[in-house]
């Protein structure tokens, strides 16, 4: 292991794993964060897992930088267990039409049928490497390069919440209405960010997303249930 530490100001430290991004690394970063959460160290206020690093925020009046890096180093030594299970979260998605206005262009660009793009997009499980950019926004890896596509030349002023998009080699879901330049191929009725709820976030780092193509009727039905608060998100833990 080749983990290094770097201060980010006087109240944060970045642990860099110094290796290529991979599902195995994401799993170890997850294990590290789980360990941090379970031992609950006084003076550590929060942490942010990323692709190949974790940033830990702390109070300098509780631990000096030198003390803290020692504590964290001990945790990295313990948290090496890779998980052999993965949590798959199913994202029902209505592809194309007004909900996926760029599907048609993408199909043309790739010389494919709509159905082929949908088939390829729903065929993979995508790993959440990290969450950032917007509240609840998952950075996903695993997109099939056959449907990778550059960002739009003219970004939209408003992309609706729930929009499913493709940009370069990434796919993602917009948690909020926001401006954006991704190719929008569909929309999910699920809400990734609900600030008024106790459980505000649909996803965690380390989860896998599986997109499932739904009909308009199904979309409307799920949307209704989501709004009533009675929709049960499909989560399934499977062995790797």
């Amino acid at each position: 292991m080749n983990i290094t530490f770097h201060p980010l100001g006087e109240a944060a430290v970045k642990l860099s794993y110094n290796e290529e991004v991979s599902p195995s690394l994401t799993s170890r970063i997850q294990a590290f964060c789980r360990e941090l959460a379970s031992i609950n160290i006084d003076g550590i206020t929060e942490w942010v897992p990323a692709y190949d690093s974790v940033t830990v925020y702390y109070e300098p009046w509780t631990h000096t930088y030198a003390e803290l890096t020692e504590i964290l180093e001990d945790i990295t030594a313990v948290a090496i267990e890779e998980s052999h299970k993965k949590m798959i979260v199913t994202i029902p998605t209505l592809y194309g039409g007004e909900y996926g206005p760029d599907l048609e262009d993408l199909a043309k660009q790739k010389r494919m049928q709509h159905e082929d793009i949908i088939k390829i997009h729903t065929n993979e499980d995508y790993l959440v490497n990290m969450i950032g950019f917007l509240p609840g926004f998952p950075y996903l890896s695993g997109l099939d390069e056959r449907i990778a596509a550059p960002r739009l030349d003219n970004p939209r002023q408003k992309v609706p919440a729930g929009s499913v998009g493709i940009a370069e080699a990434q796919t993602g879901v917009y948690p909020l209405e926001s401006p954006g330049g991704w190719n929008i191929i569909g929309r999910t009725p699920l809400q990734l960010f609900q600030p008024e709820k106790d459980e505000s976030f649909l996803l965690n780092q380390g989860d896998y997303l599986r997109f499932r193509s739904v009909t308009e009727e199904e979309f409307e039905h799920i949307l209704e249930e989501v709004e009533k608060g009675s929709y049960e998100v499909q989560r399934e833990e499977v062995s790797m």
């Binding site: 980010l8 100001g9 990323a50 692709y51 190949d52 925020y57 990290m130 950075y139």
Partner: peptide, 10 residues
């Protein structure tokens, strides 16, 4: 760079 957490004052 490979995206990472951005601290206050970064």
């Amino acid at each position: 760079i490979i995206s990472d957490a951005v601290p206050l004052g970064g």
